[in-house]
Design a protein around this nucleic acid. Sequence first.
DNA 1: GTGAAAGCGCTAACAA
DNA 2: TTGTTAGCGCTTTCAC
Lengths: 315, 315
Amino acid sequence: MNGNFTVDPEIAARVRAAAVELKYQPNPVGRSLALGKTDTIGIVVPDLANPTFQAILRGLSRAAAQDGYRVLIADSFEVSSEETILAGEARRRCDGLVLCAPRMSDAELEEIAPSLRPLVLINRTTAAAGVPSLVVDYGQGVQDIAEHLVDLGHTRLAFLAGPPRSASNNLRLQGLEAFKAAHPQVEVTMLEGGSDFDTGHGAVDAVLESGATGILAFNDLVAMGLMSGLHERGLDVPGDISVTGFDDIPFAKYTTPTLTTAAVPITELGEQAWHQLRALIRNEESDAPGSRYQPKLEVRASTGPAKAARTAVHG
Amino acid sequence: MNGNFTVDPEIAARVRAAAVELKYQPNPVGRSLALGKTDTIGIVVPDLANPTFQAILRGLSRAAAQDGYRVLIADSFEVSSEETILAGEARRRCDGLVLCAPRMSDAELEEIAPSLRPLVLINRTTAAAGVPSLVVDYGQGVQDIAEHLVDLGHTRLAFLAGPPRSASNNLRLQGLEAFKAAHPQVEVTMLEGGSDFDTGHGAVDAVLESGATGILAFNDLVAMGLMSGLHERGLDVPGDISVTGFDDIPFAKYTTPTLTTAAVPITELGEQAWHQLRALIRNEESDAPGSRYQPKLEVRASTGPAKAARTAVHG
DNA sequence: GTGAAAGCGCTAACAA
DNA sequence: TTGTTAGCGCTTTCAC
């Protein structure tokens, strides 16, 4: 048989030669059916246009490829009702599934999770058994950023929120609540938002109205859009207003001014997702039933002393 | 039978009810084997980290999903020898394949193309029959940019090249040759490069040495890296040096200064790739055996009058 | 209109 | 060691 074990080496070689001669290629579909495995994993993401999910996909794809696995992608386009269907279909075509920041409700997630196993979750947890989660501690990250702004003398902050259904946005909000409890003297305004450039760009008015001098944007994209909008209004960052992002996408190092943000090892997240999934597929004991990632504050040039503080110094 | 035709409607409904009750889900692998189709297409890209390929993937995935097809991705990590293998494996798992800017040689491409059909090529052509291509006219785009710089009074240009094996880089080089023939009085320096931020950022010295005042970067990323590097050196864009990109990625509108570039409808390219592939899979006559896309010059704030010209005006 | 059987291309277990 | 066979889960054809 075409493979590796007990055959006459001479005839095996002859068969192999004939195979290349006739360009014979085994059909993976038949093989999959017989073996009950496809050597393929699926990933479902809410929005393939989001750099975060792209990076996760990249890390996942690269790590899986090293073990001979391919990845099938499914984009739910932020439609949470689609997620369930896509996940089910993808799962039945694959040996395992990664659900990336699913927008569905906790109840729904818990209900379908068992039928999706082997399954690993990114930035979401579930009570369903045997489903590891990789989550970033956005709450801590946002607190670190807020502390940084307070250290610079800012007393009026504003948070430009992300998509309402996003679990990572909720974690940020929880972090801010903890921060407010610890710093009652600091004013924190909550602003509606989104996750892209245009959100930030369109939020200039709301930001100025808030009177805040330290702005925590939902992510780097929003921060970049905001900085661009402020720049168009003739405002100086960080002279007039300090702006922070989140994620530390590659672009953050190259904006003007360079962006203060909280770095998340996004690609590594995808890579780890594969390692967790691989353990499940192989039925190994997963050493960690999930992991928590701590964002790391990256102080760059978009944050500076609060205006009041600076005035005090000058006067 | 589980599907749609001639059965007693009453018993069909009962069966369907039982199916949801027992959570029965048909196995797509068995179905694929019996039907000889997988409802899946593959795409192989040289580098999933490249925003251009991400956008193509997105357009392809979205368009294919609308017709009920999924997409399997394969990243060759710029290793051209891997491409052949990945493409073959992906093709046998799928109903069709999109080869995105393959780095392999023309000869190799032509040799394997027939075995990969249905196949559509992006930013590459082949002599093999029945393989449509979608190509962007980078040559024309680069000429448009160069003309724009000359109109602004620049007489010394430099081109920051992309990856050597990239076909789109070769098209740009050809365009520049045509430009030089038409403008013998303009000096055009060729600089080694790459396709990412760091390439641009690291090219500052070479750019300054060239003495050029108008820089054509391989793409927007390189341009952004270059602008960032120039900024760090205290140079003003476009006051001292004009910089242009290529592609018009979303970020280009938000850099400071906003980036003059040539817009390519990248997502649409992915979408069209699906339409071409769909026609092949359905054995339809493809109305167009391939298409050519014209980049559109987007003049923004990173280009301005050449210094000499400006001085002349002032004096 | 309904049931039984063959076969998609492969692998694995079994006999020769 | 080698050849044969059953069966993965589905669809389709062909009798009933």
